[in-house]
C-alpha cells in the first residue's frame, strides 16, 4: 500500500508539473497573450509583471521564477479585477462553488444509487426501463440545456424559484438540480450494471440457497458489493461537476469559480484562466488520488493485496 501510494503521489506531482509548465509556455508563446504583446498592457500591469516574472530576464529564469511562484501558491494577479492576486480571487469565489458541488454530489449520488438499485432489483420491468431511461437522459442532455430549461420553466414561467441570484438556500435549488443530473445518471448506470453482475454471481446464489429472502439477499449481500466499486466513479463525477459548474454558474449568475473562469475567458484575463486551470487540475488529481486510496480501504479484497491494480 505504501509503495502504491508513493507511486501515485509521484505521478500526481509529474502531472501537476506538466500542467504548470504547459500553462507557462502557453502564456509565454500564445499570440495575443499579455506576456507576448506588452504594448497591450497598462503601465501598472507591466511593472507588476516585470517585478513578478522578470520579463526582461531570459526565458529559463522566467520559467524557474514562475514555477517557484506556483509551488508557493502564488498564481499571479488578475487584470480585470484591479490587479488582485488570483489566489485571493479563487478563495473568495470558492464558497458557492463548493456548496453547489457538494449538494449536487450528495443528492445526485443518493438518488442515483436508489435508481440503480431499483433498476437492478426489478430488472426488465417498467421500473428498470424508467430508471434506465432517466439515466440515459441525465447522461445525454448537456447541463447547460437542462439548466436553461429549468430556469425558463421554473424560474421565468412559473416563478417558483429565483431566476438568477445568489442569496440563500432557495437560490441554490435550481443550480443544484441542474448539476445533480450528471451524478444521478452516472451513479444509476453504474449501480445497475454493477448490481446485475453481482446478482448473477455464485455467492448470491449461495445466499439464496441459505434461505434468504430477495430483500435480504439484496441488502445484506448484493448492495454492499455493488456500492464499493461506486467509489471509483466519484472521480469522473467530480470532473463532470466541474465542467457543469462553469455553465450552470454562468446561467444562474452564481459568484463561483466557474462563473469567474468563463468571464475571464471572455475578457482575456489570462492570469485567472491559468490560475484556475492549475487549481482545477490540482483539485481533480487530488480527488482522484483520494478516491483510489478510499477504494483500497473499503474493499477487503484489495486491502491486503497491496493494491497492484493499475
Amino acid at each position: 500500500m505504501a509503495k502504491y501510494l508513493i507511486k501515485r503521489i509521484i505521478y500526481l506531482v509529474i502531472t501537476l508539473f506538466i500542467i504548470a509548465s504547459l500553462t507557462f509556455f502557453l502564456m509565454k508563446f500564445l499570440p495575443g497573450s499579455p506576456f507576448q504583446n506588452e504594448e497591450k498592457l497598462t503601465e501598472d500591469q507591466r511593472v507588476i509583471l516585470d517585478e513578478k516574472y522578470g520579463l526582461d530576464k531570459p526565458i529559463p529564469v522566467q520559467y524557474a521564477n514562475y514555477m517557484m511562484n506556483v509551488v508557493k501558491g502564488d498564481l499571479g494577479v488578475s487584470f480585470q479585477f484591479d490587479n488582485q492576486p488570483v489566489t485571493k480571487l479563487l478563495k473568495n469565489r470558492m464558497g458557492p462553488s463548493l456548496q453547489l458541488g457538494f449538494q449536487a454530489m450528495f443528492i445526485g449520488t443518493i438518488i442515483g444509487i436508489l435508481l440503480g438499485v431499483l433498476a437492478a432489483m426489478f430488472q426488465n420491468t417498467w421500473i428498470d426501463y424508467g430508471s434506465t431511461f432517466l439515466a440515459v437522459l441525465g447522461k445525454s442532455i448537456p447541463s447547460f440545456v437542462f439548466a436553461a430549461l429549468l430556469q425558463y420553466v421554473i424560474g421565468v414561467k412559473l416563478g417558483w424559484l429565483p431566476v438568477a441570484s445568489w442569496n440563500g438556500f432557495a437560490s441554490s435549488i435550481m443550480p443544484t438540480i441542474a448539476l445533480a443530473i450528471f451524478p444521478i445518471a452516472t451513479a444509476a448506470r453504474f449501480m445497475r450494471t454493477e448490481l446485475i453482475e453481482v446478482f448473477s454471481s455464485d455467492y448470491i446464489t449461495l445466499a439464496k440457497a441459505k434461505g434468504n429472502s430477495r430483500m435480504e439477499v439484496s441488502f445484506k449481500h448484493a448492495i454492499r458489493n455493488g456500492l464499493i466499486p461506486l467509489v471509483t466513479v466519484l472521480g469522473p463525477m467530480a470532473v463532470g461537476l466541474m465542467t457543469g459548474s462553469m455553465v450552470v454558474e454562468k446561467i444562474f449568475a452564481i459568484p463561483g469559480i466557474g462563473e469567474q473562469f468563463v468571464k475571464s475567458i471572455m475578457t482575456n484575463d489570462f492570469p485567472i484562466i491559468m490560475g484556475t486551470t492549475i487549481f482545477f487540475a490540482f483539485l481533480l488529481t487530488v480527488i482522484i488520488l483520494i478516491v483510489d486510496i478510499l477504494y483500497g480501504i473499503i474493499d477487503p479484497r484489495i486491502r491486503l493485496q497491496g493494491g497492484d491494480k493499475s
Binding site: 449461495l206 440457497a209 474493499d299 479484497r301
Partner: peptide, 14 residues
Amino acid sequence: SMIFQDPMTSLNPT
C-alpha cells in the same frame, strides 16, 4: 442445502 462448483466465487467477498 447446496455446494457449488467454484469455491473461488461462491463466497461473498466482503
